[in-house]
């Protein structure tokens, strides 16, 4: 990679210092085009307009301003419609914006927080992320061409999930004997792409050979915690039995490592399905 970077820079710098005669640009490229702050401001205003329409649930207004050739057009629209029906009182707060602009293109990087209430229980929810909004200048103004990174508009269009498992170290002496439980283990999965689903699953496996599937229940749209609490984590003097619904630790063979794994089907940022893992050490 580093060699490639050096090569790329060297090639370009060599090209830039070539003889002027070589620099014969087509006629329509002769006038340099530069974006100014007014362009950036207009692009940001167009993005804010889309955000206000999204908060108001006016998906038709957003659709009218999308290019039909946008890759993932229908996934984007269906996700927004699903959000409008499932998430009420949506408020999208953009902050820490950074703008890169070129001729007829503006790229707005920003962090966001999306607050909402679930439609069924009216439970409040909060999603966070960071996006790059690609804005293209069209004849009738700036248009949203794409959203990369975490997509704040559309469930299922890709936001990186977060998996939290606490604590990361458990003394073996604190484990109850099987079939006991361990109330101190906190597990939370937040995946905005699953907003509306009642449950999600994660996989847990241990260095001693145990393997279990934990079902998590939605507390609010996209936020999941273990259905069974306290988590059935216990110790015994035998090797663990996979898939028996209990996370067993052979306390004669510690230290052991528990690994919790969740596959985010669409983590955004052009990333293919990603594996999220958290580890807990038992000693």
């Amino acid at each position: 990679m580093r060699n490639a970077l050096v090569l790329a820079c060297a090639l370009l710098l060599a090209g830039l210092t070539a003889t002027p005669a070589a620099a014969q640009a087509p006629a329509d490229e002769q006038k340099p085009q530069l974006a100014g702050f007014e362009d950036m401001k207009a692009a940001r205003a167009a993005l804010d307009e889309i955000i206000r329409a999204y908060e108001a649930g006016d998906i038709g207004a957003i659709q009218a301003r999308l290019d039909p050739a946008m890759i993932g057009f229908q996934r984007f629209l269906d996700g927004m419609r699903r959000d409008t029906a499932n998430l009420k009182q949506t408020r999208l707060h953009l902050f820490e914006a950074n703008v890169s602009a070129g001729p007829d293109v503006a790229m707005i990087q920003a962090a966001w927080e999306k607050r909402f209430f679930g439609v069924a229980s009216f439970t409040p929810g909060l999603f966070t992320g960071r996006s790059t909004f690609l804005m293209h200048r069209a004849k009738d103004g700036w248009r949203l061409a794409a959203v990369s990174g975490d997509n704040p508009f559309s469930s299922e269009s890709g936001v990186l999930a977060t998996l939290t498992v606490m604590p990361s170290l458990i003394p073996v002496a604190s484990l109850a004997l099987c079939p006991g439980t361990f109330p101190g283990l906190g597990i939370e999965l937040v995946d905005p792409d699953l907003a509306g689903l009642a449950s999600a699953t994660i996989e847990v496996f241990s260095s001693q050979g145990d393997r279990e599937v934990l079902t998590l229940t939605a507390l609010s749209p996209g936020r999941f915690r273990p259905t069974t609490f306290p988590v059935p984590l216990c110790g015994e003097a035998l090797p663990p039995t996979p898939r028996n619904g209990k996370i067993e630790i052979n306390f004669l063979a510690v230290p052991a490592t528990l690994t919790f794994r969740y596959i985010d089907a669409n983590p955004g940022a052009n990333r293919p399905p990603a594996t999220l893992m958290r580890s807990v050490t038992i000693r």
């Binding site: 299922e156 496996f205 050979g209 393997r211 996979p242 089907a265 669409n266």
Partner: peptide
Amino acid sequence: SENQMAAPPIPPPTPTIP
């Protein structure tokens, strides 16, 4: 359109054996 990165099914795929 076909979305190959849709949300995973519930219940999950069967785990493999260690």
